[in-house]
């Protein structure tokens, strides 16, 4: 709808109404195109749900929910995924908030070089470090443990964590830190008493992203967990197939399991979408 120029000017910069369109027709065409594309994007999801109902209808779902699939239940995969994701998030937050504070608030020689070296590992592909991470985890005796997987994942998330926390710490005025240190507080007390409470938005973003990335990870669980009881939800996409794709009758069950295995990630992403998008945009640099 065309609006008065004055109103439009006033609106610019605050909301996004009518910035692009001369007429109602323009807007209708664009909206139609957009909705058509959204429908295309929903095809795989619709297909998964459709396939999940073949042959036995909703029984496919109830059998996956209540059943034991190759030695593990669906609920156990959820639990395994969240346990690893939580450990991963705690490690990433602890290490990178400390370092982020240090990079932002300390001055020392070689700091920027050290920061650069930290960030250059931002995009290391997991596939390229499988061999050493397998070796390290074995030497630490952490195969088939949640901690082993979480540590391997944390190593890949850490550069992003440091980037995010330093960027955030840079925006906290030094006067806050100075005021605290003038009261005689040590850096550690300033960190826990002033910096961490002020960093809530960044910590929420980093925490949500860490949980999400861990839930997305297939490679490290597949490499490091051979115990079927520890299978994560993402890993179960692979393991369930071995048990559920034998007869045509199983196709519905397998697809029902795919839909159900999306639940943990879906819950996390929907609940924290705001923090996730903010964190990704602030990083603006990771995958």
């Amino acid at each position: 709808m065309m609006r008065l120029t004055g109103r439009r000017r006033a609106a610019a910069g605050r909301d996004s109404e009518d910035r692009l369109y001369r007429s109602r027709l323009d807007r209708t065409i664009m909206t139609t195109l957009l909705i058509a594309m959204a429908v295309l994007w929903l095809v795989p999801i619709a297909s998964a749900i459709d396939r999940a109902l073949v042959f036995n209808g909703w029984r496919n779902f109830s059998e996956v929910i209540t059943g034991d699939i190759g030695g593990i239940t669906l609920w156990q995969t959820y639990w395994n995924s969240f346990a690893i994701a939580a450990l991963h998030a705690v490690m990433v937050i602890a290490v990178s908030s400390l370092a982020g504070y240090g990079f932002a608030k300390f001055e020392f020689r070689g700091k920027e070089l050290m920061y650069y070296v930290t960030l250059v590992f931002l995009a290391v592909p997991a596939t390229s470090v499988l061999v050493p991470l397998f070796f390290i985890t074995r030497e630490l005796d952490l195969r088939d443990t949640y901690l082993g997987v979480a540590m391997a994942e944390a190593s890949l998330t850490m550069p992003f964590g440091v980037l995010l926390m330093r960027n955030f710490a840079d925006t906290i005025p030094d006067t806050y830190i100075e005021a605290a240190s003038m009261d005689g507080a040590s850096h550690l007390r300033t960190f826990s008493g002033v910096f961490l409470p002020m960093s809530r938005p960044a910590l929420l973003s980093l925490g949500s992203l860490s949980v999400m990335w861990s839930l997305q990870d297939f490679l490290f669980p597949a490499l490091l967990l051979s115990d079927h009881g520890k299978t994560t939800a993402a890993q179960a996409v692979f393991r369930f197939k071995e048990y559920l794709a034998v007869t045509p009758d199983d196709i519905g069950k397998y697809n029902a399991s795919l839909v159900l295995l999306a639940v943990p990630a879906l819950v996390v992403v929907v609940a924290s979408l705001r923090f996730i998008t903010r964190g990704l945009a602030a990083g603006g640099i990771k995958e």
Binding site: M37, A38, W41, L42, V43, P44, I45, S47, A48, R51, M212, L215, Q216, D217, F218, A233, A234, Q235, V237, F238, K241, I251, Y254, N255, L258, L261, A262, A265, L266, V269, L273, I276, T277
Partner: peptide, 20 residues
Amino acid sequence: VFLLPTLMPIALIAAVFRTM
């Protein structure tokens, strides 16, 4: 709708494409 698939486990999305 456009963002969520990227934030899901990619293994899952790819498996859905395959069965589809």
